[in-house]
Amino acid sequence: MSYVVDFKEVSTAGLESSPAAEALAGLRANEARYFMNKYKHEFAVVPAADSPETLEYVSRILKEQRGIAFAAKPLETSRFQVENIQWAYVFYEDGLAVNVMYTVDDPKKRAVGFKLSEGMEIPKELEEKGFKFARQKSKLAGTIRGSFFVIKGEYE
């Protein structure tokens, strides 16, 4: 069952098993606010157990592009298209959010983004790959650290 994320009343619903539930809920709400403000799109998530195709899609891109497989348990996913961009999200129990931004008509604008909830350490899977993280302030999520890489190749 899907859940539309409310960015006005931040809720940990679906994230309760995470030791970073509050921070991850703020990060998820920050994403919901972004999509509402930029695209007028409601950001909805589903339990990871109910979306094996989204998990497989994101996992395949991570593995094939950078040899990354996260040990953390995926809690929720989201997958949708706004305008010419397909989006896929995975929110992990340790506080990590991974998103795939895949433009349908422009192979130069395809990337995987990583966002760390406030207070979260860089996962060893990313630390080993040498990713550098920039900081971003958010009223909903505190300090978010993020990084990304460009996708080369086709993934539909």
Results as ranks from 00 to 15, higher is better:
V82I: 14
Y3V: 07
I61S: 02
G153A: 06
G130M: 06
S147W: 09
E125C: 00
V100N: 00
Y3I: 06
Q136R: 13
N84A: 11
E125A: 10
R110F: 01
E128Y: 03
K132H: 02
T54W: 01
G67Y: 08
F43H: 13
G130K: 06
E154F: 11
M101A: 15
D105S: 09
F131I: 14
V150I: 13
E31C: 10
E16D: 08
G146Q: 10
I61K: 08
P74A: 09
K137S: 14
A29D: 00
V100Y: 01
E128L: 10
K108M: 05
E16A: 13
Q136L: 12
Y102M: 07
M36Q: 13
P123H: 11
A141Q: 05
E128F: 03
V58L: 12
F91I: 11
E64C: 03
A21D: 00
V4Y: 06
A13K: 15
E127F: 08
L24R: 09
F114R: 07
G146D: 09
A48S: 14
E83H: 05
I68T: 01
E93M: 12
K139H: 05
N37R: 10
K109T: 11
A48M: 07
R33F: 11
F133E: 13
D106V: 04
F35V: 01
G119E: 08
A32S: 12
E16F: 05
V46I: 08
F149W: 02
V112E: 01
L62K: 13
T143Q: 10
K8G: 10
A141S: 02
V4P: 07
A25Q: 05
G113D: 07
R145W: 13
A141W: 04
S147L: 06
K40T: 13
G119D: 10
G113C: 09
R28V: 05
L75H: 03
Y89S: 09
R28F: 02
L27Y: 12
E83Y: 11
D50E: 15
S117A: 15
S18A: 13
S18D: 01
R66Y: 06
S18V: 07
V46E: 12
Y39L: 04
V10A: 09
V4K: 08
Q81K: 02
Q81G: 04
L75W: 01
V4R: 05
E56M: 05
P107S: 06
F114A: 11
V150D: 09
F114C: 11
L62V: 12
F70S: 09
E93I: 10
F114Q: 12
E93H: 05
D105L: 11
A69T: 15
E156H: 09
I61D: 10
A44T: 09
E31H: 05
E64R: 11
T77E: 02
S59Y: 00
V4F: 03
V104T: 12
S18R: 10
I151T: 06
E22K: 15
M1P: 15
T103Q: 15
L27C: 09
T54C: 02
G142E: 06
G146W: 08
Y34G: 07
A88R: 09
E93K: 15
F133Y: 14
F80H: 11
K124P: 04
K108G: 13
A72T: 14
I122H: 04
F133N: 03
F133A: 13
K124S: 12
Y92L: 08
F7Y: 15
